[in-house]
Write a protein that binds this DNA or RNA. Structure first.
Lengths: 202, 202, 202, 202
DNA sequence: AATGAATGAGCCTTCATTCAT
DNA sequence: GATGAATGAAGGCTCATTCAT
């Protein structure tokens, strides 16, 4: 009985999140009204508030969902990499692939970084981010110790490796660039590797 | 007499823009009300509309002002560079220096890319951007022809050279990173140069 | 089996009324939501509607319960009075004692006279009030006839005898007065007696 | 120019307060919508919020206005009293007269004591109340010192003298009593005087 | 050029109540 | 009897913009 309820509840939540992804990426978070979400999700105002508390709850829920999906996918694919070069390139390549598979979600994550989330949501986002970063650094530390990857200030790695492709992708989701990230992934993977390869690399 | 008036008009415009820079970076553009701007600028609602037409007029005016200042400064400093390496490094270094000198404006430009500007403002921004890009490419073309800089898809250069330091700066203006961009400029300049140096470089 | 059910039903009703007394006196009737009552009573929304029909049903049920308790107690204690003076004083004293023993209920009765009850509830309240008043007047008539109590417009007796202590109590339940009614009961009993004693009093 | 503005502003404020008095006493504060106030006052929603901040601002503004009018009138009329008895009786009589002259305002003050005001409004109300009470006590102190009025706990005077007529008036504004307060003012004045007259009274 | 009262459409959110399970 | 997801009407409030002075 409770499983039926749970299934129904989950379906409703999913329907609302899907409606939100569509509306938020099309019109923007602020410009999307609760009424539009209701219409799109096929539910009542009250139902949205029952499941998400308020509008910001939907926006942050969707954001967290996207970030977690992206992060988990990267960690999964890094497991199959052997060398420093493969790993650095994989960071770029996986990003392009994920964007290719989840264009709407990518558009949401890239376009609405500045949504003003509640303190609670911000904490959860930060926690998620820190755990992910820690796992990533655990993976790369051996390569840095062997100087296959250059030693840099810790905070510089992500901007240098991922910054360019994210910048490119941000332009692309806005329609400012024609070629999709997947079409330039090797160029950016090459640039990332050159930017951080160390003297110990083969 | 008209000069006095003009001076007064400029002072009023400046006061409003300064109030806007403060409010917009502190609370965000959408969250800032005209009433707050009035209070901060020490003027009336009507005065704001007299000088800027509407709220978006302030936001886009401020944005354009910042972009133009940043762009002009880069072109000026590139004139003093001799080699490809100097030039590529200068793109990163000038960015850091400008941020150091204009932290509030930097925060505004970096945090509110997604302001929904009017068609007119968008056109003006695009035009400004294109002219700037064209001037930049004119500067770098000889280096690319001599293969001192790698040949890449045209749209890849900006993300690869400027993407990392912009990404870093975006985190910094939000308080997520401790070290200011100026403290890491050489690391990022080095990475940028490694990422695009071509076989023809010395 | 049905007795077990009945016991359970009564317990549930009592739990809801206790929750209501707490919430209503703390936050006010209008400001209390059904959800809060559920939380406080440890039951579901549906359960509340099953037992009380609607929100007003709880408020009026609680009100009626309090009024009846207060009235019955007064009539009981008047039976032990012999003289006009004892009787008039008892009206004040019993009020103070009852408040001392039922502070929460007193707070509810005193603070929320203006709850908008349904027609049915209003009728029941009026009927209760009239029966009570009639019984009270039956008790006092002999004293008035003997002029031990002054002859006044009928509607003046309650305000003159009970008005002051009720006014005092209303302030006290709101925390505006320090001394509890029980600490000033003799002063108010004396004043009440002086206000209505007739030439026939000893 | 500013005087014209001020006059206009005052007229608008007055219109809103008059509409509020009508709606609040007819339907109750909670049940009155801003829309109804707009209609009644002949102004826009925004105008109401421009002048009063929010709904509670209207309710507390009206309350304060009523209280101040009532208080000022009492102090004025006490000036013409010579003796303790005249003064005590005047408290009751003035109350009845004021109610007779301001029935609507009286109804508002008597029926909606439990409006939940903001902290600011509560402070202002308390301050008003304390100043008024202090002035009243200054007036009566000599009579108490001469024992023309009985010595009581300070907090007991107001309930004992004013409590009965206020209680009566509360019933009357609700339509529960037929005779208006002005018709019974001498009875209540007499009772009040008897309740507090001291051994030193003539 | 400046002022600020006035406008009013529109939105987020609340919450009593219902009802399928 | 119990549960709690769903409903949706309704209302308080915001705020960019206008315009008479």
């Amino acid at each position: 009985m409770s499983s039926i309820r749970a299934a129904s509840t989950r379906a409703r939540r999913t329907a609302i999140l899907e409606a939100a992804l569509d509306c938020f990426t099309t019109r923007g978070v602020d410009a999307t009204t609760i009424e539009e979400l209701c219409h799109q999700a096929g539910c009542s105002t009250g139902s949205i508030y029952h499941h998400f508390g308020n509008k910001e709850g939907i926006a942050s829920g969707l954001f967290l969902h996207g970030i977690r999906s992206l992060n988990a996918d990267l960690l999964r694919r890094l497991q199959h990499c052997q060398t420093a070069e493969q790993s650095v390139r994989m960071v770029v390549i996986q990003y392009c692939d994920w964007i290719h598979d989840n264009p709407e979600l990518a558009r949401y994550l890239l376009s609405f970084r500045d949504i003003s989330f509640s303190a609670t949501a911000r904490l959860e986002l930060q926690s998620t981010y820190h755990h992910h970063l820690a796992a990533i650094f655990r993976w790369f530390r051996p390569f840095v110790l062997r100087e296959e990857i250059r030693t840099l200030p810790p905070e510089a790695y992500v901007p240098i490796i991922s910054g360019p492709i994210q910048d490119y992708a941000r332009h692309w989701v806005r329609g400012q660039f024609q070629l999709p990230p997947s079409a330039v992934k090797d160029v950016f993977a090459e640039a990332a590797w050159n930017a951080v390869r160390g003297p110990g690399a083969g």
